[in-house]
Design a protein around this nucleic acid. Structure first.
Lengths: 117, 117
DNA sequence: CACATATACATAAGTTTCTTATGTATATTT
DNA sequence: AAATATACATAAGAAACTTATGTATATGTG
């Protein structure tokens, strides 16, 4: 499990990316998919996910349709047209950010500093 | 510039890594170094940095020595023995987290989903 | 068939960690 | 001399979580 501060900033992008790749998903499915894909290393809590989904719906990046499995309700989310743009922007930003982080982490490697320990 | 939510979770690790690579640095120097290394894409604000440095000193991951350049004070920070362990742990965690993110971002690429748009 | 676990949603209080604003002071450049 | 850069610091407010709690249906197990 990663420290929660790390996951914090990337949750929104992770969700947008999943929806981009999968067309539509419901909340519980998202939590399970992330668990699977990350081998339990990232676990999205419901208290973080549901408010985020509601916010993305309110900003019109997501739209919903409710279905019933027996008597139990499922709320499916999918990207709106605007949401597809948002998701692309966020995903590109995250990829660039990762590159920048790697530059930072590798800076000064190969100098006399930091080689011991 | 990256959205602040992205930078949020990584600030502590970035600072610990810089100190690991550079031996000792003072606050203002850290802000400038990060600006340089990231080509202005990450700018650490003083309101974020100084409280963080104080917290890392309180937790005994950092120790300080004050020097004077003329009449102006500089407060140098360096990793303690414990801080070196903390920094290694945090840096390793960040590297792993980046790998996990890349798995997530590349999941489902190559299926029929997500190829259009 | 009772009980535990899994599925599925939701919200609220509290915490952490930043942003934004402000303050103080010295040094350098124009 | 005035603006900008260097150098520290703190405080109020905002954002985005965690943790706890609540409701309800469905499924597996001894």
């Amino acid at each position: 499990m990663y420290s929660s501060e790390l996951v914090k900033g990337t949750l929104r992008t992770i969700v947008l990316n999943l929806l981009k790749e999968n067309g539509r998903m419901y909340g519980y499915e998202i939590t399970q998919r992330v668990k699977e894909l990350t081998d339990d290393k990232i676990q999205i809590t419901e208290g973080a996910l549901y408010p985020l989904l509601h916010a993305l719906e309110a900003s019109e990046d997501l739209e919903t349709e409710v279905e019933f499995i027996g008597k139990r309700q499922r709320k499916y989310y999918r990207l709106t047209k605007q949401g597809k743009q948002t998701s692309k922007k966020k995903i590109d930003e995250l990829r660039e950010f990762i590159e920048t982080l790697q530059i930072l982490l590798d800076a000064n490697k190969g100098t006399s500093h930091g080689l011991i320990n």
